[in-house]
């Protein structure tokens, strides 16, 4: 069995008096595709925000490949190899599609502020190199056709895909996708499923997927965690989850 990559152990977070997530433990192994589901307000996005350092858990610990993520800032966590997308797409709207991806290569950059003033041959070489890699990525997702457009002018579906691509440019070991299928119709969803599988196979990474749509999750994930009211109520394979009475109750109501 592959090693554990992400390990959330009894993680709790409180906002004032409200316990948004209570003693949740989740693991993701190298190369695994894991789903995180639950009704609205169950705390799924909050889990993402804790993993990426936007919030600090009140109790419990989060480790990536054995390294604690406590007190790290979001950009430091990205440096360690976690990348994410957002529920309500957060691109850099005034940058071009090309620059949106290019800027995400930042963590692999050798040359910084001073070099961009001196513009040595070394610097120019790296910039040219990055350009090639950016275009290569864009082509992979068929976004090179709009690469010089500002990101805000893209169609909704393209914006979603660009956001995933931008996350991939940071070369993550773990990719967090926050409701990637939101607002998509069923044929777009089918396309998305293919895309996610393709990403996992091509980029050699693990994926943790928050999703509302059962079809998407069931069709793709190897293992699923279910949250309700900030607590984990079930964990298992898609077929086990589908049969779990607690999950059925959570989604359909008790009566």
């Amino acid at each position: 069995m592959p090693d554990i990559l992400l390990d959330l152990s009894s993680v709790t977070i409180r906002f004032g008096g409200l316990t948004a997530v209570s003693s949740v433990s989740i693991t993701v192994r190298e190369g695994e595709l894991v789903g995180l589901i639950g009704p609205n307000g169950a705390g799924k996005t909050t889990v993402f925000n804790m993993v990426t350092g936007v919030y600090q858990p009140t109790e419990g610990s989060i480790h990536l490949g054995g390294r604690s993520l406590a007190k790290l800032k979001p950009f430091q966590i990205t440096d360690l190899g976690i990348a994410r997308t957002f529920q309500n797409i957060r691109l850099f709207p005034s940058l071009t599609v090309y620059d949106n991806v290019r800027v995400a290569f930042h963590r692999h950059l050798q040359n910084h502020s001073l070099q961009s003033l001196i513009r040595s041959s070394n610097f120019e070489e790296e910039e040219a190199n990055l350009k090639a890699r950016t275009v290569e990525l864009l082509t992979l997702f068929n976004l090179q056709r709009v690469q010089d457009e500002p990101a805000k002018s893209l169609s909704y579906g393209d914006q979603r895909r660009l956001e995933i691509l931008r996350a991939l440019a940071t070369k993550p070991r773990l990719l967090l996708l926050d409701e990637p299928a939101a607002g998509m119709n069923s044929s777009e969803k089918t396309e998305l499923l293919t895309l996610i599988r393709f990403i996992r196979d091509t980029f050699d990474l693990a994926i943790l997927l928050v999703e509302h749509d059962m079809k998407v999750v069931m069709g793709i994930c190897e293992r699923i965690h279910v949250l309700e009211y900030g607590r984990k109520i079930a964990e298992g394979t898609p077929s086990a989850i589908r049969a779990d009475p607690k999950v059925i109750a959570a989604y359909l109501g008790d009566n």
Partner: peptide
């Protein structure tokens, strides 16, 4: 420069910029 587009990225969306490692 690649580094420099980060200024605009930070201006556009700080949370997303941090999430991209900036």
């Amino acid at each position: 420069s690649t580094f420099g587009r980060g200024f605009v990225a930070v201006a556009d969306d700080e949370v997303a910029a941090e999430a991209m490692g900036l």
